[in-house]
């Protein structure tokens, strides 16, 4: 079994994985980081979105071995060490951008990538960027509002 080492939420991690182990399986099952969710099996829903080297990826469509030597951030690693919510997390709470909470980690990780990349994102750009994340509860209205607010607040 391949042995890999990577950094997850700032901590060094070594793990034995099978070739077929998906990054999301490594996170959820071996590292008990269950904030990253699985909502589909065709790479559509985006609930499993995490950052690899700072970019949003679907962890259900990436092999754990491909994360060898990389820096992975999950929803558990987004808030500050003092527990302070990131601007995107805070904006989701402020604007009621979540209901059942299941798509939320992926949505927040994806939005975080956007606001870092494009702090001036317009509503249309936000809606287009979120194409890879499905939410069944909110109708997206408040998610878009939250992302816009976070972008205006300076992202990060």
């Amino acid at each position: 079994m391949p042995s890999i080492s990577l950094r997850v939420n700032g901590k060094s991690v070594r793990a034995e994985v099978e070739g077929r182990t998906l990054l999301v399986e490594l996170l959820r099952e071996k590292l008990a980081l269950t904030g990253t969710h699985v909502g589909c099996d065709t790479s559509q829903c985006g609930a499993c979105t995490v950052h690899v080297d700072g970019r949003s990826v679907k962890s259900c469509t990436m092999l754990a071995v491909e994360a060898d030597g990389r820096e992975v951030t999950t929803i558990e690693g987004l808030a500050g060490a003092d527990g302070k919510l990131s601007p995107v997390q805070a904006a989701f709470a402020e604007h009621h951008g979540l209901q059942c909470g299941f798509c939320t980690p992926g949505m927040v990780m994806s939005a975080t990538d956007l606001v870092r990349r494009n702090p001036g994102a317009t509503e249309a750009q936000i809606r287009e960027w979120l194409e890879g994340n499905l939410c069944r509860c909110t109708g997206y209205h408040n998610i878009v509002k939250a992302v816009k607010a976070a972008a205006q607040a300076g992202g990060k």
Partner: peptide, 9 residues
């Protein structure tokens, strides 16, 4: 192509 996450990989 695809969506943002797909384009990143």
């Amino acid at each position: 192509i695809g969506d943002a996450q797909v384009r990143n990989r």
